[in-house]
Design a binder for these strands. Structure first.
Length: 410
RNA sequence: GUGAGUAUAGUACAAUGGUAGUACGUUGGUUUGUGGCACCAAUCAUUAGAGUUCGAUUCUCUAUGCUCACACCA
């Protein structure tokens, strides 16, 4: 027996209604906010992710599905921002009047050990906005995410925001942090020792209790809490908070929020739920003003986010399939199909039994799957009528065939 | 990559060192053109391999799958 690959899942009919709802709401809300859908290939040159996502990230280091084909190195996309930026540059979208507002949805691939809220193939929904440095752009981005979540009935998720500053202020902060950590470095966990070299900011994000204790040291807390970011960046962050307040978007500032992808600067944010298990982030994003240029385009500011749809799925209320409008009960399958065809053409959903089983069995099926049973037996065929039975009220009447539509819609 | 737990019908759960049950589902029936209820019947399972044993689905080991957690991320 061949099974689905580890970390992949079938989305079965019983869940399709819920997925369709997530997608329909996305289409409606993003289109209304003037985001346009973009669909990019699910595989790209490996180099795009190495340069775009950053080769010091775990995603690029050890989680990519990479293969060789015709002497090219190809990778299944582990996220979609790099791909969208590539498409933005390649299709000359930077020549259009900014801002360019895009959204996407689709499967992403990461080679990780699966667990709750984590699969090897999973789906993300995201928006990317190019061409504006204004904090109002960040605010609209976050607001769009919140409004989308609200549309799914999720009203009490935590929005956390932070500012990483620009590359200059981050450099200063990084150096100061290193200075403070250095005396106790040997007490930190092995991962943090590596982080100390590569990306010390991530030490702030470490979940090892010992490291957390060490970070509580007064001087370090003071450094975290003093606004290390430069005046310009601080002003940008202040503006963002002002706009979010004006939009009535509730948020917490989390000074220890550091996102794992290398391309972020200034605004970063996450939206979390406490009912998701340990993978509690539904949505993550931020500003990435340097990425377009790094990937060979003109210097272009940008901001965006991505949501994990499987994680959303576990949070929202399951939608069940609506019943069919009608089920045709007949001992004459071909006539039943003809009737169905006629009704389907009128926008009525209906089905029938292929094997002309006993009426009792057909009614059983009808009552489970449909609102009306339409009896088309010998009598009805002779007299060109149909017996319409309302399965909820158990009332029925025989009517001329051409009056069927009125009787179904009332 | 590291660690923990788990594996019985289509699904959800029982039980047992000797005959594996229940519920739901599915199919058929309770006299032939009327459903939801009830009753009857059928259908369907011990992940794989090795070991201990007179005998293993049960105990042990290995593999594999699944689940969860760490790292990391949506």
């Amino acid at each position: 027996m061949i099974q689905a690959q580890k970390g992949t899942k079938d989305i079965l009919p019983e869940d399709s209604k819920t997925w369709q709802m997530m997608e329909e709401n996305a289409l409606k809300i993003f289109n209304n906010a003037n985001f346009q859908e973009i669909r990019t290939p699910i595989f790209e040159a490996t180099e795009l992710f190495a340069r775009g996502v950053g080769d010091s990230t775990d995603i690029v280091n050890k989680e990519m599905y990479t293969f060789e084909k015709a002497e090219r190195s190809i990778t299944l996309r582990p996220e979609n921002t790099a791909g969208v930026v590539r498409a933005y540059i390649e299709n000359g979208m930077h020549r259009q009047t900014p801002p360019i507002k895009l959204w996407y949805k689709g499967p992403m691939f990461r080679y990780e050990r699966p667990q709750a809220g984590r699969q090897r193939q999973f789906h993300q929904l995201g928006v990317e906005m190019f061409g504006s440095t204004e904090a109002i752009a960040d605010a609209e981005c976050i607001n769009t995410a919140v409004k989308y979540l609200n549309s799914l009935g999720l009203n009490s998720l935590d929005v956390e925001i932070n500012s990483l500053g620009c590359s200059k202020c981050r450099e200063t902060f990084r150096n100061k942090l290193r200075e403070l950590i250095k005396p106790n470095l040997d007490k930190y966990c092995d991962d943090c020792k590596l982080r100390y070299e590569k990306n010390p900011l991530r030490i702030l994000d470490c979940k090892v209790p010992d490291c957390n204790e060490l970070l509580k040291e007064a001087a370090i807390q003071e450094l975290i809490n003093t606004d290390f970011i430069c005046e310009e960046c601080a002003e940008h962050f202040t503006q963002l908070k002002k706009y979010l307040d004006a939009l009535n978007v509730k948020y917490n500032v989390n000074k220890q929020l550091v996102r794992g992808l290398d391309y972020y600067n200034r605004t970063v944010f996450e939206i979390k739920s406490n009912s998701l298990g340990s993978q509690n982030a539904v949505c993550g994003g931020g500003r990435y003003d340097g990425l377009v240029e790094m990937l060979g385009g003109p210097s272009t500011p940008a901001v965006g986010w991505a949501m994990g749809m499987e994680r959303l799925f576990t949070l929202i209320e399951k939608q069940s399939d609506a019943k069919l409008d009608a089920f045709v009960v007949s001992d004459n399958p071909i006539e039943a199909l003809k009737l169905c065809e006629e009704l389907r053409g009128q926008g009525i959903s209906c089905d029938f039994d292929y094997s002309a089983r006993k009426f009792k069995k057909q009614f059983e099926k009808a009552s489970k799957t449909a609102n009306y049973a339409l009896v088309l037996g010998e009598d009805e065929l002779k007299s060109n009528t149909i017996t319409v039975k309302n399965l909820a009220t158990a009332t029925q009447q025989t009517i001329p065939r051409n009056e069927i539509l009125e009787n179904l819609t009332k």
